[in-house]
C-alpha cells in the first residue's frame, strides 16, 4: 500500500513536471474555454439562467474532451512505454485521474469566471454550486479518462473519443445541471440532497468500474 502511494505521487509529480515544461496543450484548452465563452457571448449577448447553466456545461464538456483525450495519447505512450511498465496499472490510472481532475478543476474555475464576466454572475448559492460542480467534474473526468484509455487501443482516434464519451457523460451532466439549476434558484427543490447522493453514487460507480476494467486495457 505504502509503495503504491509513493508510486502514485511519483507519477503525478512526473506528469506535472512534463506538463509545465511544455505548456502549449494546457494553454490551448484554457484559450478554448475563453474563446467558446466569448463566441457564445457575441451570439447570445444576454441569456437567462437556464441557458447559463446549459452553456456552462456544454463548454465544459467540450473542454474536457479536448483536455483529456491526450491522456493516453498513443504516440506519447509509445515513447514512454518502458517508463510506465515500471508501475502498477491501477497506480497509472489513479495518477492520470488525479492529474486530469486537477486540470478540470482549473478549467472549470476559469470558465466560471469568464461566464460571470460576460453574462453576469447568476450564482445564488455558492456552496451548492461548487459541490455540484466538483461532483460533476469527478464523474466527467472518470468517464473521459476511461474512454481515452479505450481510444488509445483504437487505430483511428480522431472523432472516436467524442462519440464514445459524450453519450456516456450524459447521466452525470443531467444530474449536475439539475443541482445547478437549484443553486441558481431556477427551480425549488427540497430533496436536492438526494440528487447530491445520487450524483456521488454515479461518480463512485464510474470511478470503480473504470478502475476495475482499466488493467484489461493496459496490458499490451
Amino acid at each position: 500500500m505504502g509503495v503504491a502511494i509513493r508510486q502514485f505521487w511519483q507519477l503525478v509529480r512526473k506528469e506535472f513536471a512534463l506538463e509545465f515544461r511544455n505548456r502549449v496543450s494546457l494553454g490551448a484548452v484554457l484559450l478554448f474555454v475563453v474563446c467558446a465563452a466569448y463566441i457564445c457571448y457575441k451570439v447570445f449577448i444576454t441569456i437567462n439562467g437556464l441557458a447559463w447553466i446549459s452553456l456552462f456545461w456544454i463548454i465544459l464538456l467540450f473542454a474536457a474532451i479536448n483536455l483529456i483525450q491526450r491522456t493516453f495519447n498513443a504516440s506519447y505512450m509509445k515513447r514512454r512505454w518502458n517508463y510506465y511498465t515500471l508501475y502498477d496499472s491501477t497506480v497509472v490510472y489513479l495518477s492520470k485521474y488525479a492529474y486530469n481532475l486537477f486540470f478540470m478543476g482549473l478549467v472549470s474555475v476559469l470558465l466560471m469566471g469568464v461566464m460571470s464576466l460576460f453574462f453576469g454572475n447568476m450564482i445564488k448559492d455558492y456552496p451548492m454550486f461548487l459541490i455540484g460542480l466538483s461532483l460533476g467534474i469527478l464523474g466527467m473526468t472518470g468517464v473521459m479518462t476511461f474512454i481515452s484509455a479505450v481510444v488509445m487501443r483504437a487505430d483511428s482516434n480522431g472523432l472516436l473519443m467524442s462519440i464514445l464519451a459524450m453519450p456516456l457523460c450524459l447521466p452525470v451532466l443531467l444530474l449536475s445541471m439539475k443541482v445547478h439549476a437549484v443553486s441558481l434558484r431556477l427551480i425549488q427543490d427540497t430533496a436536492v440532497t438526494g440528487d447530491y447522493l445520487l450524483l456521488g453514487g454515479v461518480d463512485l460507480l464510474i470511478f470503480g468500474i473504470g478502475l476495475l476494467l482499466f488493467p484489461n486495457l493496459w496490458k499490451a
Binding site: 476511461f146 479505450v150 487501443r153 487505430d155 472516436l160 456516456l168 454515479v202 464510474i206 468500474i209 476494467l213
Partner: peptide, 29 residues
C-alpha cells in the same frame, strides 16, 4: 464503431468488452 476501428483481434476483444461493461453500468442510472 469502436469495434470496426480496431484491426487487431485480441485488442478489439479486450477493448470492446471493457467498453461494453462500462457502457452497461452507466446505462443503468
Amino acid at each position: 464503431l469502436l469495434r470496426s476501428s480496431i484491426a487487431d483481434v485480441d485488442a478489439r476483444g479486450r477493448v470492446s468488452a471493457a467498453y461494453n461493461i462500462f457502457a452497461f453500468v452507466i446505462m443503468i442510472p
